[in-house]
Simulated scan of single mutants.
Amino acid sequence: MPVTLPRPRLLDPASVPALRWGVIGTGIAGPFVSALHRRTTQRAVAVVARDQAKTEAFAREHGIGTVHRSVSALIEDPQVDVVYVATPHPLHHAQALEAVAAGKHVLVEKPIAMSAAEAREITDAGRAAGVLVQEAMWTRYLPQSDVIRQVLADGLLGDVRLVRADFGFVFPFDADHRLWNAELGGGALLDAGVYPISFASSVLGPPDSVTAVGSLAPTGVDERADLLLPSGGATALASTSLVARLPVTASVMGSQARLDVWSPFFGPTGLTLTSGSATAEETSTWRDQTFDRLNEGLAHQAVHLAAYVGEGRLESPVHPHAELVSIMATIDEARRQLIAAG
C-alpha cells in the first residue's frame, strides 16, 4: 500500500488578532499588502518610502489611510501594531532596531540583516523589548511546509541522507542595480541563496561546516554559489545564481522515500512523495490549491505572525531566532570563502 502524504494543518485567518500594519518600502511590499488585504483580517494602515509621489500612489492603490514622511514617524505612529520592513537589505538592521525600540512587533524581509551579528542584535533586542521579531521567509508558513514537517516528524522518509535546493535566475549585469552593487547588499547569496539555505536548515538544522564554490561579479559580489553543508549523517547541497537559470526545486532524500517540492519550491506549489523499490516505485502527490495566485501565499506569514502575537510569543516556533542567526552565519561564511578565492 503506497504511503500517502498528510494534510496540512491550516490557521483560520479569522481566528487570529486583527493587527494594524505599518509598511516601510513600496517595492516588494506590493504583493504582500495585496495578499494581506485579500486573504486576511490584517490591515496596512500606514506606509512610508523614499519617493513621496510613488508612496501616495501605493497608498491609494491599497487603501492605506496614512502616508508618513519619515520612517521614524511611521514607527512612532500609535495606530501601528506591526512594522513590516520591506526596504533593501542594508537598511533592515537599523529600521528593525528602531521599530523594536518603539515597542512594535516587526516582520523583516529576507534576509533579516546583512550578517549573523546584525541578525543576533535584532533578535536579542526584540526579546529584551518583549516584542515579536520574525523574518519574512514566507516559505516556512505555507501549507506545504507543514506537510513537510509532518512527513519528517512521522519518519516517512526513513533516515534523511541528502537535501537539495536551488534558486537562481539570469539578471543582466548592471553595476548600479541593487543585485550587483555591494553597498546595496548585492549578490546571489543574500537575495536568492537565503531560500535554499533556509530550506536545508529547516530539514537538517545548522551545518557542521560550510564549503562554498562559485564566482564573483566585477563589482565583487557573488554571482553564483554552490554550497556543501554536512549535518550529522546527512548532507545538503544548496545552489544560487544570478547568471544561470536553475530549476528552483527542492528534494529531501531518505533511506525509505524521497520528497520532491515542485518549482518554485519557495512558493505554494506541490509535493511528490516517492517510495517503494527502484523497479516498483509508488508516488503520492499533494497540490496547494488554497489560492489562485502564487503571491497570495504571502498571506500565510502574516496570519502566523498575528497568531504568535496573540499567544505572546517573541519568535516564530517554525523559524526561531537561533536558526535565523545560524542561516546568516552560513551565508557569512560562504561569502567569505568566495571573496577569499577571488
Results as ranks from 00 to 15, higher is better:
F32L: 15
A175H: 04
G30M: 14
L294Q: 06
V106D: 04
A136G: 02
D159N: 12
G168W: 07
D226M: 12
A322Y: 01
Q144I: 14
L190N: 07
P143R: 03
R245A: 15
V160R: 07
T274A: 04
L162P: 03
A96V: 06
V45H: 04
M114A: 13
G297I: 12
L157Q: 11
Q52G: 07
R258S: 10
G30L: 15
N181C: 08
A102T: 10
T123I: 07
T66C: 09
I327M: 11
D77S: 11
T219M: 08
F199P: 01
I327L: 00
G342E: 08
M253V: 15
V85R: 07
R149T: 01
A128H: 02
L338D: 00
E281A: 14
A14E: 08
R313T: 13
A116V: 05
A341G: 02
P88E: 10
M1Y: 03
S145Y: 13
E118L: 12
G193I: 13
T290E: 03
H92A: 06
D176M: 13
V100M: 01
H68A: 05
S251Y: 07
L273V: 14
V106H: 02
A44C: 10
G126C: 11
H93K: 14
P88R: 14
P13R: 02
S34D: 13
R60Q: 12
L246I: 07
Q144T: 15
V194L: 08
V151N: 04
A117P: 01
G270V: 11
V3R: 14
P78S: 09
E61G: 04
R50W: 03
W262E: 06
P268Y: 08
K110H: 02
T283H: 11
S251T: 14
L5C: 00
D191A: 15
T279Y: 10
T330V: 15
S209G: 01
P264M: 13
N295P: 05
T240N: 00
A49M: 09
L157E: 02
V85W: 02
G193R: 05
S263L: 09
A128T: 06
F32Q: 10
A94D: 09
V221S: 01
R127S: 10
V170P: 06
A125F: 09
L273R: 13
E118R: 05
V325P: 00
T139W: 11
